[in-house]
Design a protein around this nucleic acid. Structure first.
Lengths: 229, 229
DNA sequence: GTCTATAGTTCGATAGAC
DNA sequence: GTCTATCGAACTATAGAC
């Protein structure tokens, strides 16, 4: 008894103490951040617990003290990160729906694109974006269910808003356009350096505003073009 | 002496025999095909030599008899497959340039899209497409150099043809459009099932002709739309 | 909470019989 | 060419001292 498995209690941190000392050197956070960066760049199977421990500056056993298994750690990164991003995206979507009956295509696309591209402006955001891109592109991700839980619900709602924003276009066309946009966002989030390499600087991938502008502009153009027939 | 490392000689197969018997049960090919499928679905690090051996129905030692290391096997898949695909794409590109001075945007995009989507029509093509998508999306692929060697050269030439086909559009806009198209192709090649899931059948991903038609149509629309300003 | 030490497994790769 | 057997290293995870 006194089972090792009950670790949910640690979610409310110091627990037996009302006020923690100078900030006890956030070990759990350090592990999460190291894991995120390494998983993003080398993948789940390409990263060992030792890699993470070394990067975080802790012994390997401590990694499994905070997160019971490697897979739990992997999942926890998404639980940890997806909350803020999900809420931001919900907010943008709600703002769209609040703004009256007339849905502006450009605004819809901006609301879809901006939160994902602006991930890079926050610490660790580049790694998290890359991790999402990796997970959503992995044919074997279904068993983990991360995408189905964190991304699919809001994706469906954006998709519906997009359909409503272009009522005179057949639904299937809107769906295709949506998936081309999703693909482009994933590609931008993976950010492997190939765009920079092939475009030889003509595409300023480093500037988030430029990326958002070009992306929205192109997909507005594509969708509006389909409307005109 | 009698070094184990000189295996290049096996590239010209039976070697000491002018005519092989009934077709000696192509072991090397079976290993390549199993490896391709497993690497495509589970990744390089997610697949073990034992996995491959079991799938191919041979003992693990035989895998490393034909391919000296796991990484060599991985590389060899691309050397083996990329030849035919590369030549097909070169052909399409050459046909474009032969057809006179006036480059038709729709034909250029078709030449880019079709060979990659039609990969699925050949045996093992789905797995190879998925493998390309995985490799090109991996931030750590640079060390292997596979993309730089097999994909980048022809990508640059298609990019140039596309620029020439839309002379009245700023180069940077053409580059952005090109990368959005590449992203969409990668996403279609990865084929994780998410398009099918989110579109609930409205996008017929299973039909190659439909995929090509929708893709070319949308990107023609996007690029033509930008021209009109 | 943090650490050392290590159990138990699986890995890539090799040796050598046939 | 094909096989069995196995080495040494790396892996995930656990035990237990502090």
């Amino acid at each position: 008894m006194n089972d090792v498995r009950r670790r949910k209690s640690r979610l409310k941190q110091p627990q037996g103490r009302v006020r923690q000392p100078p900030k006890s050197r956030d070990t759990r956070g350090a592990i999460l951040r190291s894991a995120e960066a390494l998983f993003a760049n080398q993948g789940l199977h390409g990263t060992s617990i030792r890699d993470i421990a070394v990067d975080a500056g802790v012994p390997p056993a401590l990694v499994l003290y905070y997160f019971q298994t490697k897979d739990d750690l992997y999942q926890e990164i998404f639980r940890w990160r997806s909350k803020a991003l999900g809420e931001l995206r919900e907010e943008r979507l709600a703002a769209l729906l609040r703004s009256g009956t007339k849905l502006d295509l450009r605004q819809v696309l901006d609301a879809m694109v901006r939160p994902l591209i602006e991930l890079r402006n926050e610490p660790g955001g580049v790694a998290y974006a890359r991790l999402i891109a990796r997970e959503v592109s992995d044919p074997s991700e279904a068993s983990r269910g991360i995408i189905a839980k964190t991304l699919d619900p809001i994706a469906r709602r954006f998709l519906q808003v997009l359909v409503d924003a272009v009522p005179d276009l057949p639904e299937s066309k809107v769906h295709w356009a949506y998936h081309f946009l999703i693909a482009s966002l994933i590609w931008l989030m993976a950010n492997t350096g190939r765009i920079q390499r092939l475009s030889e600087g003509r595409c300023n991938v480093a500037d988030p505003e430029a990326v958002i502008r070009e992306t929205v502009e192109f997909f507005v153009s594509g969708i509006e073009g389909l409307r005109r027939g």
